[in-house]
Structures are given as C-alpha cells and as structure tokens.
C-alpha cells in the first residue's frame, strides 16, 4: 500500500518536474530569442525597447490567460477576439457618451459584458453539449456581427474618450508601465486561484480526467461554465485595456486575437488536451510572441512572416506537447475518451 502511494508521489513529482521543465524550456527559448535579436540589431536590447515589448505582451498575456483557463478544461474558445472587441466597443461608446462617469463604474462595464458573453459560450458548451469549437466559432461571428450592427460603421476616436483613461494607460511607476504591473497582477491572481483554491484545482481535474472527476463527484458542467465565465471576464478586461491603449476603437478591434491567444497559451505549455499547463506559462508564451513580433519589425522582416511563424509555432508546440505526454506514458493522448 505504502509502496503504491510512494509510486504515485514519485510519478506526481516527475510530472511536476516535466511541467516545470516545460516552463523553463519556454524561458530558455525566450533567452535564445533575446540574445539572437540583440546580436542582430543594435536597438533590441535597450530599456526603451524592452519596455515596449513588455507593454505589448501585457494585454496578450491576459488574453492568453483567459484562453488557458478554458483549454485546461479540455475545451477551446475561438470567440476571444470577438469578446474583447465587443466589450471594448460598448465600453468606449459608453465612456464617450457619458463623459462624467466615475472610473470605478467604468471598469466594471467591460467585466460585466465579458462575463455575460462568456456565460453564453459556457452554457452552449457545458449544458448544450455543443462541441467547443463549433459553439465558439458561431458566437465569434455572432458577437462580431452584433458590434457591426450596433456601430453602424462608426468608430470611437481617442478624442472622445476621457483624458484620465488615456493618461492612466501610459502612466509609469518608477519606469515600469502600469499596464505591465496590472497584467502581472492578474496573471498571478489567476495562477494562485488555479493552484491553491479547490475550485481552481477542479478546473484541472475536469480537464485531465473527466471520467475520474465524474466518479469523484465533480459537476463538470458547472466547472466548464465557470471556466468560460472567467475567460469572458478576462477577455472583457483585456479588450478594455487594448481599446484604451490603441485609442481609436473600431469594430474590427482585436480580431485575430483568438489565434494569438491560443498560440501564446500553447507555446507556453498549456495542453490542448486539457488538464496540463499553467497560466504563468501562457503569459510567458505571450512574451515570446511579443518578442518575435518586435524582433521581426526591427529586422525589417515582412509582417506576414509573423503569421507563418505563429502558425508553425502552434504546430511545433502541440507536437512537443505530444512528445512529452507520450514520454510520461501516453496516458493523455492515447486513451482520452472521445
């Protein structure tokens, strides 16, 4: 008996080691990228440029974090970009038409919108039993189409947004942009929630073994719904921050972010087969993507290489994931119920 428990402990330690290795792998990759770009360009390794990379990674890190929570439950959300755009447009429009609104109220609007949109996704997937890809592909076009209809081709320009809002996003505390601090704070809070709270552990449980978690007595529907709600909430926040950062809010804001957020999460070691990976890893994946972006711009490489590299990186990361999983014992991939 004690031998069996010892074996379980050992295998858990080994799994933890591999997972830790995965994040170290991302860090090593990031370091190699950094060194390569600093050698190739003279402008990469400057305080100014590193700050710029961190700022552009910050919002993607929040979106990747949102995507990662859903991926952990063995689902997927391709409506991330549309939810961000939806929350951003409505909030910016509201702020423009109500200039005197208090900051605290304004912050809750995108969160509320994101929560509602995420809940719709969650209900469809968890209770409607619609495959995650199909459901969110539908809502992706639904949400985006609704913004188009609502906006009538109008856009909200930065001159119509409150000044304090635009000032806040550029603010720095001892050289570090507030945006970056905010992103780090959100990622750390979500990470602590997933690691140490029972509800967070259940998100992992449902994704890593639905059958076992059913016999354990977990209500997977509720947990999947919760994951989608959290995803929507974070997307609302990310969309709002993105809108304020960009300044001019158009109807196509953040389209294509479902790809980037997924790429960041998968590169950061979050498995699409669910149950494995961390949001810290997803955030690191976002930093990797932002670094590649920045380096390619400095190297004067066409932006279309970015698309290619991002796609190839997803495939490579998924393949690496499968290799690690099969080296653990292939339990994840070979025997996952369909």
């Amino acid at each position: 008996m004690s031998g069996a428990i010892g074996a379980v402990g050992a295998s858990r330690q080994f799994t933890k080691f591999v997972l830790r290795m995965r994040e170290t792998g991302v860090l090593v990759f990031l370091a190699i990228l950094g060194i390569a770009f600093s050698l190739l360009t003279s402008t990469f390794f400057t305080v100014q440029n590193i700050t710029a990379v961190a700022s552009s990674a910050a919002i993607l890190a929040i979106a990747a974090c949102a995507q990662a929570i859903v991926l952990l439950t063995r689902n997927l959300d391709v409506s991330v970009g549309s939810m961000m755009g939806f929350a951003a447009y409505l909030t910016a429009d509201f702020a423009a038409t109500h200039p005197g609104i208090s900051p605290i109220v304004l912050v809750f609007i995108p969160m509320g919108i994101g929560l509602v949109l995420g809940t719709i996704n969650g209900l469809l997937v968890a209770y409607g039993k619609v495959q995650a890809l199909i459901a969110t592909l539908g809502t992706m076009s639904l949400y985006r189409g609704l913004i188009y209809i609502y906006a009538h081709g109008q856009e909200v320009t930065s001159s119509r947004l409150p000044h304090w809002l635009l000032g806040f996003i550029d603010a720095r505390i001892s050289g570090i942009p507030v945006l970056v601090m905010l992103a780090v704070g959100i990622v750390v809070v979500v990470s602590l929630f997933l690691q140490y709270f029972p509800l967070g552990r259940r998100i992992y449980a449902v994704g890593s073994n639905p059958v076992a978690s059913f016999f354990f007595g977990l209500r997977s529907e509720r947990i999947v719904l919760l994951a989608y709600m959290l995803c929507g909430l974070l997307c609302g926040v990310a969309g709002f921050l993105y809108a304020v950062r960009v300044g001019t809010v158009t109807v196509v804001l953040a389209s294509g972010w479902e790809m980037s957020s997924l790429a960041a999460a998968v590169i950061g070691g979050v498995s699409v087969a669910g149950g494995s990976g961390t949001v810290i890893g997803a955030a690191l994946g976002a930093v990797v993507l932002a670094t590649i972006d920045n380096g390619l711009v400095l190297l004067n490489v066409s932006e279309f290489w970015r698309m290619f590299i991002q796609g190839a990186a997803i495939v490579a990361a998924v393949a690496a994931d499968a290799m690690i999983a099969s080296s653990i014992g292939g339990a994840f991939y070979a025997r996952r119920p369909r």
């Binding site: 997924l262 998968v266 699409v272 087969a273 698309m307 290619f308 590299i309 796609g311 495939v315």
Partner: peptide, 23 residues
Amino acid sequence: RYGLPSLAVTLGTMGAYRGLAFI
C-alpha cells in the same frame, strides 16, 4: 501519423498556410 489533436494542428496550419500565401 503523429496523433496530434486535429483542431490545434489545423488551427496552426491555417495561420501558417495563409502566412505562406502572403509571403
């Protein structure tokens, strides 16, 4: 052949192929 999840793979190649077409 390699048993990778088709959704993630084709999501990746979706971006990669379009990037390739642009390049």
